[in-house]
Design a protein around this nucleic acid. Structure first.
Lengths: 202, 202
DNA sequence: CACTAAAACGGAGGCGCCTCCGTTTATTAG
DNA sequence: CTAATAAACGGAGGCGCCTCCGTTTTAGTG
C-alpha cells in the first residue's frame, strides 16, 4: 500500500503546495481576516494583496473569487476557535474551560454580526462549508462537555447537543445593541444551571 | 384651489422635469432595456450611457444605482405590455384579443427567464415594485376578460383572477428548454376551455 | 553544486464603477 | 428679446476588478 503524504496544516487535499505558495496562501488568509474585519466584506482585494506583500495576481491565483477568500478566512477562524477548546481544557478545570470557551464563542459571533447577511448567503450557497464548520464546532463543544461531565464539575444529565441547542439562541438572536451583554448573561446562566447538582457540588 | 400640473407621461410624481432631462431619462431607460436584454443584468453602465448619447454622469444622476435603472426598465416593460391590452381590444374580437395578449405575456416572461434570479431579489427587496406591477397586470387582464365575458365570446362563469391563477403556472414553471412551447400550449388549452360553452358558441 | 522543468510570482493594462465640479442649457422674469 | 438663475450635462480622474504573460523561484536530478 502507498505511503500517505503527511497531512499538511491547511487545505492539503490533493497536492503538496510549494513552500512559497503555502507561505503566501497563509499570509493572504491571515491578512484578509484583518482587512475584512476592518472594512467589511467588500474591502479592496488589492489592499489585501498589498498588505500581504504579494501581487494581485498571486491573490487571484489562490482565491479566484472574493467568495473563495471569504470562505477560507471563515474556515480558519472557526478552526482557531475550536482548537482553543483543547488548550483551554489543559489549562483550566473542565467547567471553567467550558465556560471560557463559550465566552469566546460569543465574542466570535459578535465580530460576525455586521457581516451576517453576506455570510448567510455564502453559507446557503456552499452547503459543504456549513456542514464542515458546524460539525467542527459541535465536536469541540462535545469534547469540553464530556470532560466536565466525566470529572463531575457539571451535572451528568446533559450532553453537548443540549448545550449547543442552548447556544443556538445566541446565533439567531436579533441584532440589538445589548446583544453581547445579553449573550454573556445567557452563558453565565447556562453555566449555573450546568453546575447545579453536579457530583462535586459543595 | 390650486391648478394641478398636468400628469406627465412617466414618473411625474413631484417635480415636472426639465425638457432635456425628461428626454435623456426616457432615452436611458429605452437603451438600458436593449442593453440588458443583450448582455444581461450586469451589462456595463458606461455602454448604456454611451449608446444613449449622454455622459456617464447623467446616467448616475437619473439612476443612482444599477438597481434603480433595472427597476425603471422593468416598470416600463410591464407598462408597455399592459398598454397593449387596450389596443388589442380595439383591433380584434374580444376573445382573440385576450388570447393574443396572453401570448405576449408568455413571450415577455420568456425574455426574463435568464434574469430571473436577480429580478427575484429585486422584487423581494422592493415590495412596492412588486405590488405596483402585479396590480397593473391583473388590471389589464381584467379589462380583457370582462369584455370577452360581456359579449359572450368566452364563458361567463370565470373572472380575471381565475385566468391569472391559470397563468401563474407559467411564471413559476421550471426552466426547461421546452418551456416556451409548453407555455403556449397552456394558453391554447386555456382558451379552448374559456370558449367552450360561451354564449355565442356555434 | 549546476541545471532544468514546473510552479509560482507580480504587476501592467484594460475595463468598469462612481464622484465631483466646471460648463452648458432651459426656463422664467422683465 | 435679454438677462439671470436654477437645472442639467458630461467627462476627467481615482479607484477597484481581473486577466495575461514575461520573470523569478523552487524542487528535483545528475
Amino acid at each position: 500500500m502507498a505511503v500517505e503524504p503527511p497531512i499538511e496544516q491547511k487545505a492539503a487535499e490533493a497536492k503538496p503546495l510549494r513552500a512559497d505558495a503555502q507561505r503566501n496562501r497563509d499570509r493572504l488568509a491571515e491578512v484578509a481576516g484583518a482587512v475584512f474585519a476592518e472594512h467589511g466584506i467588500d474591502a479592496s482585494l488589492e489592499e489585501i494583496a498589498r498588505r500581504a506583500g504579494v501581487g494581485i495576481g498571486t491573490l487571484y491565483r489562490h482565491f479566484p473569487t472574493r467568495e473563495h477568500l471569504v470562505e477560507m478566512v471563515y474556515r480558519r477562524e472557526v478552526e482557531a476557535l475550536c482548537a482553543a477548546a483543547g488548550e483551554l481544557a489543559q489549562k483550566h478545570p473542565s467547567d471553567v474551560a467550558l465556560e471560557e470557551w463559550m465566552r469566546r464563542f460569543v465574542d466570535y459571533i459578535a465580530t460576525k454580526r455586521g457581516l451576517a447577511t453576506s455570510l448567510r448567503v455564502l453559507l446557503n450557497t456552499n452547503s459543504t462549508l456549513f456542514s464542515d464548520t458546524s460539525g467542527r464546532v459541535s465536536q469541540a463543544l462535545r469534547q469540553l462537555v464530556e470532560a466536565a461531565v466525566a470529572d463531575g464539575t457539571i451535572r451528568g444529565d446533559v450532553d453537548a447537543s443540549d448545550v449547543l441547542h442552548a447556544l443556538g439562541g445566541i446565533y439567531s438572536a436579533p441584532d440589538t445593541k445589548d446583544w453581547r451583554d445579553r449573550s454573556r448573561r445567557l452563558v453565565s446562566l447556562l453555566m449555573d444551571g450546568l453546575r447545579f447538582g453536579a457530583a462535586k457540588a459543595r
